Amino acid sequence: MSRIDSINREFTLNAPIERVWAAISDPAQVANWFGSKAEFQLQVGSEGWFEWPPEICEGRYAMRVEQVDAPVYFAWRWMAEQDVPFDEKQSTLVEWWLQTSENGTLLKLKESGFLTLKQQQMNVQGWQQELAELEAFVLS
Rank of each mutant, 00 (worst) to 15 (best):
E39R: 14
D83R: 05
R3E: 00
S140T: 12
Q43H: 14
W76V: 01
L13N: 05
F34K: 00
M63P: 08
C57K: 15
P27S: 05
W21P: 08
Q41M: 07
V72M: 12
E135Y: 06
L93W: 05
V124Y: 12
E18W: 06
N14K: 15
S25C: 00
T100P: 10
T92E: 13
S6V: 08
V65C: 04
S101W: 04
L13C: 06
G48N: 03
R3W: 00
I7S: 11
K37V: 03
T100N: 10
N8K: 14
L107N: 07
Q120E: 14
T12I: 10
W78T: 06
G35N: 00
E18S: 12
E88D: 13
N32I: 04
T105A: 04
E102G: 08
K110Q: 14
L134Q: 05
E95L: 02
Q99A: 13
K89Q: 11
L115M: 12
W21K: 04
E111T: 07
R19M: 09
W33Q: 02
S2F: 08
A132N: 12
Q29T: 08
M1F: 09
G104Q: 08
W49L: 01
E10T: 10
A80I: 01
F11R: 10
W97R: 15
P54D: 14
R60E: 07
V84C: 03
K110Y: 01
A38I: 04
E81D: 15
I56H: 08
V30E: 01
S112M: 04
V84I: 09
G104S: 08
W49H: 13
L134G: 07
M63A: 13
L106I: 11
G104Y: 07
R19F: 06
A23R: 01
E66S: 08
F40V: 00
I24K: 03
E18V: 07
E88F: 09
E95F: 04
T105N: 04
E81A: 15
A22W: 06
F34G: 01
T100G: 10
E130T: 07
E51W: 02
F137S: 01
K118P: 04
Q121H: 13
L93Y: 01
R19H: 14
Q43W: 08
D87K: 13
F11P: 04
E111F: 06
T100E: 15
A75Y: 06
G35M: 03
L106Y: 08
E102L: 09
